[in-house]
Amino acid sequence: MARSVSTQRKIITTAAAWLIGLLIFFPIFWTILTSFKTEAQAISNPPVFFNFDWTLENYAVVQERSDYMRFLWNSVIIAGGSTVLGIIIAVPAAWSMAFVPSAKTKNILLWMLSTKMMPAVGALYPLSLLFVWLNLLDTRFGLIMVLMLSNMPIIVWMLYTYFREIPGEILEASRMDGATLREEIFYILTPMAIPGIASTLLLNFILAWNEAFWTLNLTAAKAAPLTAFIASYSSPEGLFFAKLSAASTMAIAPILILGWFSQKQLVRGLTFGAVK
């Protein structure tokens, strides 16, 4: 039972927690705020907080100058494609490991996990070479494949831990109730597995969206997603804080919102079920 604490203590913890929360969030807040300023206001000293002329101009300029929409679309395709494809391949694997485990299941799972731990840089040149041979350099398909494979272990693991939580008695009950295998999958298993699959989808979409090694190294212009788009801002020309902020805001906003929904799954997905 949670005990009641004194109001005074609650006020102190609330104040401390909010202070820390706001401090940690501040750079994001500041970036979003700056994106609505003019370039002059963006670098003014002392900094302006709310009493500036709000403008959407930066967003227009970013889109116009660097074709933001194209990068956004690449990000959506690459992150979405790799995640969906990964799940399609991982569901049967996780399924059979969860419901028809064999003596080898544990080792296969651990081996899959170990592939995630390979340092990407060790495979950089061979993979670039393969991309050249297969004509995949700077293609969305190539990146979809690479991100799908690099996230596959996490996808399999997440699905496996979710599937394992479906109690065997429920499947037996449905068998007693006369469900055929098809009906069992359609009426019982799928609805029960969907929340887990959705969480896996969400977290891996975020991971793929933010992936910044392969996306930077295997793309040039055509297939570059938002990570590369932002990286192109690393060499500034003139006044650009407001525009950088607008570009950054556009790159992180969708994922921030998705991310807040996936907090719980995050813990589970990234600790391979070891912390729940």
Partner: peptide
């Protein structure tokens, strides 16, 4: 939510 936010910001940003 405030504390977790930075994790979802892409590294380049």
């Amino acid at each position: 939510i405030l504390v977790i936010a930075p994790f979802f910001v892409m590294p380049t940003v």
